[in-house]
Simulated assay, not measured.
Amino acid sequence: MHVILRTAVAQPPAQVMAGFSRELFLALAPPFPKLRLRRFDGCRTGDQVEIELDTVAKKLPWTSLITDDGVLLDGTHYFVDEGQVLPPPLRYWQHRHLIEPGPAGGSVIVDNLEYRTASRLLDALIYPAMWAQFAWRRPIYRRWFGRPRL
């Protein structure tokens, strides 16, 4: 299943990419489930991010590996994280972070997520929660990187 959300911000792609830090990662965490950051190497190929999700009933580990990063010919900065250890019901996770050049020197942050569970029905049932988890990021991105000029 795919989830794609686009958020326009004021800063240019290189500045936004440089702002993807441990502090931003923590600021982007939704209120539930509670997240404990165990490791954050960064957003470059080979870096690892390890979190623990506290669902009240159980603590679930999640480890992602940054499998690719770079700059495209059009000036888009990007990095890709892929799940290595995933909490149930997830079986596959790939999150492409794209920071595209936007109008007036700003950027468009694109959260392009692909996930899978054990069934297509479950994929569809959890889609609203996945969408909401990433829609939560929009105002946070704008606080960190500024609102774009219209």
Rank of each mutant, 00 (worst) to 15 (best):
L60S: 08
E50V: 14
Y141E: 03
D47C: 04
D123R: 05
V110Y: 01
F79K: 09
A27I: 06
M17L: 13
Q48H: 03
G83M: 12
D69C: 11
R36M: 00
T55H: 03
F134Y: 10
G46M: 07
Y78I: 03
A104N: 15
H95I: 10
R149D: 04
M130I: 12
Q48S: 02
H77F: 11
G106R: 10
V16F: 06
H2D: 05
T63E: 01
K59G: 06
E50C: 13
V9K: 13
W131P: 01
R143F: 05
L65Y: 03
A118M: 04
A8F: 03
T7G: 01
K59F: 06
V108Y: 05
Q15G: 01
L150V: 10
G105S: 06
F79Y: 15
V56I: 11
K59P: 11
R143N: 09
S21C: 05
D81F: 08
Y92V: 09
G105E: 08
H2S: 05
Q84L: 12
L26T: 03
P101V: 07
R137Q: 11
M130S: 02
Q11W: 12
R38G: 05
D68H: 06
F145Y: 11
G105V: 04
D41R: 14
L122R: 09
K58G: 04
M17K: 15
E82C: 08
L125C: 12
F134C: 01
R91H: 07
T45F: 03
S119N: 07
A135V: 15
V49Q: 14
R142A: 02
I109Q: 05
V71T: 12
A27P: 04
P31D: 04
G70R: 15
A135Q: 15
L65T: 02
E50H: 15
A57K: 15
R6G: 00
V110S: 03
G146D: 03
A8K: 15
A104G: 06
W93N: 08
Y127V: 01
G70D: 08
A57E: 12
R137W: 07
P13V: 09
L26V: 07
D74M: 07
G102R: 13
L150Y: 09
H2T: 05
R96M: 13
W144K: 02
H97I: 10
A27F: 02
L90M: 12
R44I: 03
T67F: 05
Q11D: 11
L73A: 07
A57Y: 15
I99E: 00
Q84A: 03
L72S: 01
E50I: 11
V71M: 06
T117Q: 12
L24A: 00
K34D: 00
Q15C: 00
